[in-house]
Design a binder for these strands. Structure first.
Length: 671
DNA sequence: GCAATGAGCGTC
DNA sequence: ACGCTCATTGCT
């Protein structure tokens, strides 16, 4: 009778061994960001393995959760509920991933389940049930790694082979086939029986690097993970990684969490690309996550790119990572010849051809010569809408530069808040008093101009040349090695077969004029990424950059010296008290909520609060809908700051305060 | 003095 | 969104 009553009421008995499950419930509230204890009913004993997905009753609701641990005792004084069910016995939350997610949540003042949402793809039951091939043995090491051209390159490869956790910041030589180099590093790691995670900015880079890796390692050892895969494919590949079948992972952002078995190497390529910053809470950055992961697991790390960020420079200067860079001689022979043309360069004004052509004469000549030699020419232009171009306010004809006839545009508000005059997008000449040559009007209006329009204009300047465009709407991954003008926005530059004969970098003033902490660094990064697609100077490769040659990023490009630029950049930021020399957090929200949070916040020793300042448009009385405050501390107080912020947020969420605040640590955009 | 009722809070 | 605690209320 007792047994029937129990069965009817669904009464359950706890498992005999380790009857308590510690569960992270999928409720993204700061004050609930800790494990809760549940009893494991004996029917679920076998399936309730550490790392599996479960469903539990939490505050009267059925919610998803992750079982992180089975234990024998609980600290909880009240009655424990039972696990409702085990969603799947697949242990998706590996111990390493659990530790990493906890660390990332703590680092960014976020909560663990938010990190897990980024790290673990949604379940796909059919995929989970599929049979998978047995893991393959270690492949032989590659015969040539191509790392010997770098003074510390060979040592780094040896460290990977010996499973030492070497850490390096690598600036690829300007002619480098970087996918081949990274694939070689992954192959060396794989030969030692270890896994590699390689994170690149976008899908095109995934394709290139994946191809390079499979060429060395075979298709069954390498998986490509990117956000645009369908749910089934995504989960299938992710599971192949988790189950230890694929030991080399190539992917975008989310792949930074890929739970590769026995990791031996983590790589982030082009760490300055803002695609490496996750836009969802808690806003982790690939470089920082991989640094943390390398530290936590004793794995080798490579922070790589043509350019070098201030953050990477800090890793070098603090002694945490070695710098791997080619010698000056190697760089000189590998780089294209770079010419800077600034507004003050007399050459432009005197040159007769500069007026009749639509480009500065040097740029025109360089492009024409490359086309005549049968090579494609890359033209880098600002993104559509990035800068509004100008037209006559009356007759609508495009407003043109009186010196080179290039299109005029407004550079936007400068760092000092002052409006600057209309500026030529090609030669950078400022035009304070516009007068339309067609109708004589002095009125001027803004129009949206992007790569398409620039392509049209260039097509006319180089009559008869093929013009291809690559940008937001349609991104080309490669172009043939035949004469053509390839107009591309930053980040969308196609690779050219045999390399470009020349590149014209026309967006310098637009990039450098931005009131952004990272304007200089970002400009150099984009320039170098484009210029690296051009043939070496010895093969006729030329780059023309329309920018003042005295500027630090321009000098760094001309000399191809990204390390020097990063030193300058970090020194400058140290002086100003900007990241990464300090740790910063932004707090956004409606004014009352920001004020309440700051009131609640225990700012760590030596820290300071800046603002709050209005965010976005102001109303009639000068009040903003939203405000932003900055909190700044010395680097050693970074953990304390994150802790203080999450504690303050937790007190707010526990009180069910209606207005939420957004907290971000080390955001890319500060102004 | 104490049961009945409801608001608020924590959430196992 | 449940169920517990605790304060308030109303009656003996």
């Amino acid at each position: 009778m007792t047994s029937t009553r129990r069965a009817r009421k669904g009464e359950r008995r706890p498992a005999a061994h380790l009857p308590i499950a510690r569960v992270y419930v999928d409720v993204p509230l700061a004050h609930l960001d800790r494990p809760f204890d549940y009893q494991v009913p004996e029917q679920l004993d076998a399936d309730a393995v550490p790392g599996c997905r479960v469903r539990v009753r939490f505050a009267g609701q059925l919610v998803d959760g992750y079982l992180v641990q089975r234990v024998s005792d609980t600290d909880h004084v009240g009655r424990l509920a039972f696990l409702e069910r085990v969603t799947s016995p697949e242990p998706v939350l590996t111990p390493e991933l659990a530790e990493l997610a906890r660390g990332v949540a703590d680092r960014y003042a976020g909560c663990m389940v938010d990190v897990l949402r980024l790290a673990i793809p949604p379940r796909h039951a059919k995929v989970e049930a599929e049979d998978v091939a047995e893991p393959t043995g270690a492949p032989p090491p590659p015969e040539h790694t191509g790392w010997h051209r770098y003074p510390r390159g060979t040592a780094f490869m040896e460290a990977l082979a010996a499973e030492r956790h070497a850490r390096a910041v690598w600036q690829a030589a300007p002619d480098e086939d970087w996918p081949a180099r990274l694939a070689a590093a992954a192959a060396v790691t794989a030969a030692a029986g270890r896994g590699t995670v390689l994170v690149v900015p976008d899908h095109r880079d995934v394709d290139r690097l994946h191809a390079a890796c499979t060429a060395l390692l075979g298709a069954d050892r390498v998986v490509a993970l990117s956000a645009d895969l369908g749910p089934a494919k995504r989960y299938r590949r992710w599971l192949a990684v988790r189950r230890g079948i694929a030991k080399v992972v190539v992917g975008t952002r989310a792949a930074m969490f890929a739970p590769v078995a026995e990791p031996g190497l983590f790589v982030v390529w082009d760490d300055g690309d803002d695609l490496h910053a996750e836009p969802r809470a808690p806003y982790p950055h690939v470089r920082d996550v991989l640094v943390q992961r390398a530290h936590q697991t004793g794995t080798a790390l490579l922070v790589a790119g043509f350019a070098r960020t201030a953050e990477a420079q800090l890793l070098v200067e603090s002694g945490w990572a070695h710098a791997i860079a080619a010698s000056r001689d190697t760089v000189r022979t590998a780089a294209p010849r770079v010419t800077a043309i600034g507004e003050s360069d007399a050459q432009l004004a005197r040159d007769e051809a500069a007026r009749s052509a639509r480009l500065p004469s040097v740029a025109f000549d360089v492009a024409r010569r490359a086309l005549r030699d049968g090579a494609p020419v890359l033209v880098q232009v600002p993104r559509r809408g990035y800068v509004p171009a100008l037209a006559c306010g009356d007759c609508r004809s495009p407003a043109r530069c009186r010196r080179c006839a290039g299109p005029l545009a407004l550079p936007g508000r400068h760092r000092d808040g002052e409006h600057r005059p209309a500026t030529c997008r090609w030669c950078g000449h400022g035009e304070p008093s516009f007068r339309c040559p067609e109708c004589g009007s002095r009125r001027i209006r803004a129009v949206v101009v992007g790569a398409g329009r620039t392509a049209e204009e260039l097509g006319r300047a180089f009559a008869g040349a093929t013009v291809r465009t690559s940008g937001r709407d349609e991104v080309l991954s490669s172009v043939p090695g035949s004469p053509a003008l390839v107009v591309a926005t930053p980040g969308a530059e196609p690779v050219a077969e045999g390399g470009y004969g020349a590149a014209l970098l026309l967006d310098g003033w637009a990039l450098l004029g931005r009131a952004d902490l990272r304007a200089g660094e970002e400009t150099l990064r984009r320039w170098m990424t484009a210029a690296a697609l051009v043939r070496p100077a010895g093969d006729g490769g030329r780059v023309v950059v329309i920018a003042e040659s005295a500027l630090v990023p321009v000098q760094a490009l001309v000399r191809w010296d990204p390390a020097w630029h990063a030193e300058q950049e970090l020194a400058g930021r140290t002086e100003l008290g900007f990241p990464p020399a300090v740790r910063m957090a932004t707090v956004d929200g409606v004014p009352s909520a920001v004020a309440a949070l700051l009131d609640e916040l225990e700012v760590p020793e030596g820290g300071e609060v800046l603002g709050p300042v209005p965010l976005g448009e102001l109303d009639g009385e000068g009040n903003a809908d939203r405000e932003r405050a900055l909190v700044r501390v010395a680097r050693p107080q970074g953990r304390a700051l994150a802790g203080a912020l999450s504690a303050a947020v937790a007190r707010r969420t526990a009180r069910k305060e209606p207005d939420s605040v957004r907290v971000r640590l080390d955001p890319l955009e500060i102004v």
